[in-house]
């Protein structure tokens, strides 16, 4: 039975897996500053045993509050940082092995397939370069476009992301936030990737500009068949563009399902609380709601058992003692909870 009234979500896809993430773990040591040597004083459990997969042409939403490890997952997939353990497969190939042992050519080939765009469109463009130089930079690195075609290609990319040819001669500081995000997308698309990670791409943009970028992401998916990992704390935008959604809390995935299933009948109490916490832009929808008490605990010493239990309205004794297993509780609907909302 549906808990919330929700309509018209994206239909789930049946295509093959493009990305498989298996038991990904990342711990960051915490140091105290000594005179010469540093002393390790703790471990941040940034990502703890995270598994999911992303299909071709799919948008996979990853939701969570700040510090839940969603950005770390993105950086691990792209191998910008090394994992503590776990594996990521891209088209069946082990990404970490490849980056460790393969030749430079092979590594670059893999880099071309996965790209990312960031939250802050101000920091993500080199302020000393023109837009043309920024977008043609990938051509220099990968040498996949002969110099004679650079111009044509850059103009093509600009058009693809909704900018104009004359923008190529300008510098990043002459653009607004939304336009910069478009430039970032053009740069990412310059290597013709199959997979794009969008890390909070709209949260620093103005409301009227957000829709432009969200729609652009959707259009690009249709035109060039990109798969996305869409990372955000904003449930509404995740719901808008994702086929499937995973919810993270303190480094772990607590729930994963098709978008409609997840938002209609969340199994995990945390997902439920998140959904209730989002203000609905409709005064008629104003309702009494359960507000989650407390704050997200520190990932340095996460709570025992289920990490959510200190804040959970449904918590029982067992929740503090045993870690719930992340499993399929309904068809294609996974959660890690002893007392899910099953009815």
């Amino acid at each position: 039975m549906a808990k919330y009234h929700v309509e018209g979500g994206k239909k789930p896809l049946t295509s093959n897996n493009l990305i498989e993430v298996k038991n990904l773990v990342k711990y960051f040591p915490v140091y105290s500053r000594g005179v010469l040597l540093k002393k390790q004083v703790g471990i941040v459990h940034a990502v703890d045993n995270v598994s999911f997969n992303i299909k071709r042409k799919e948008t996979f939403g990853l939701v969570g509050e700040s510090g839940c490890g969603k950005t770390t997952v993105a950086r691990l997939i792209l191998n910008l940082i090394k994992p503590t353990s776990g594996e990521v497969f891209f088209e069946g190939e082990n990404v970490f092995d490849k980056f460790q042992s393969a030749s430079k050519k092979e590594k670059l080939k893999l880099r071309r397939k996965m790209q990312l765009i960031f939250q802050n469109p101000y920091g993500s463009l080199d302020p000393r370069m023109t837009v043309f130089d920024i977008i043609s930079e990938p051509f220099i690195i990968h040498k996949h476009v002969p110099k004679s075609q650079w111009k044509e290609k850059v103009y093509g990319l600009l058009e693809l992301v909704g900018l104009e040819e004359y923008h190529a001669e300008r510098y990043p500081h002459e653009f607004s936030g939304g336009q910069r995000q478009r430039i970032c997308m053009a740069r990412a698309l310059a290597v013709e990737p199959e997979f794009l990670i969008a890390d909070e791409p709209v949260s620093s943009l103005d409301v009227s500009i957000r829709a432009q970028i969200l729609n652009l992401l959707g259009e690009l998916q249709e035109r060039i068949g990109l798969a996305y990992l869409y990372i955000s704390h904003d449930l509404s935008s995740v719901r808008q563009i994702s086929h499937r959604v995973a919810v993270m809390y303190l480094g772990e995935i607590v729930e994963l399902a098709d978008t409609d299933k997840l938002f209609k009948s969340p199994l995990h109490p945390y997902t439920d609380a998140l959904i209730q916490a989002v203000p609905i832009p409709d005064p008629k929808a104003r309702a009494m709601k359960i507000v989650l008490p407390g704050e997200v605990p520190s990932p340095i010493n996460p709570p025992s058992g289920c990490r959510f239990h200190p804040r959970c309205p449904r918590a029982q004794k067992i929740c503090g003692k045993k870690e719930p297993v992340f499993k399929e509780l309904k068809s294609d609907h996974f959660a890690a909870c002893f007392f899910p909302h099953l009815d």
Binding site: E7, K10, S176, A211, Q240, F263, I280, D282
Partner: peptide, 21 residues
Amino acid sequence: LLAAVPRLDMRKTLRVIPGNI
């Protein structure tokens, strides 16, 4: 502005406000 904001309780085609601030 209202039509450009995604909503949690329904998925709709987001209408774009063209241009910039």
